[in-house]
Amino acid sequence: MSDKFVVGYDGSVAARRALEFAVSRARAQGGTIVLAHVLEWSPYSFLTPSELEERHKRRREEMARAEEAVLAPVVAELNDSGVPVESVIRYGNIAEILGKIATEQNAVQIIVGREGYSALEARIFGSVAGTLVQTAPVPCTIVP
């Protein structure tokens, strides 16, 4: 069985760097890429009644947009370059869900980029990379 690398991918420049790093690892070890796109979501947030009515519709639209605009181009690109890839879209807390995906997929590593917030910003708002370091169930690489 080939090694799986979960890459947190949101289309940003930082995520792109993480993806490139992961691809080079996967090539070197003959592994596969799991492209994970997590939409930040809390079941305890507050919505207006009309947002409740449209939630299911919006979710469908958000997932379609993520699939189309964020994941599909990368999947096509990797397929062309011969790296095996699969993609996942989920809702939830980003770091927590990346950890869950890694467990489900029996991945060997999680790879994420970082935005380079200052220490103060990260302390106040929290950061995905920081949380992953604390909680990831498998080794985690943070690509600067």
Binding site: P43, S45, F46, L47, R59, E62, Y91, G92
Partner: peptide
């Protein structure tokens, strides 16, 4: 609390959200 909510339904309207919105009214 979400103990009985299917994780695959994340992103849909949760029990908490429906209750919170109704309460705000």
């Amino acid at each position: 609390k979400g103990d009985y909510s299917d994780p695959n339904d994340a992103g849909e309207v949760s029990h908490f959200q429906a209750l919170a919105t109704a309460l705000s009214g």
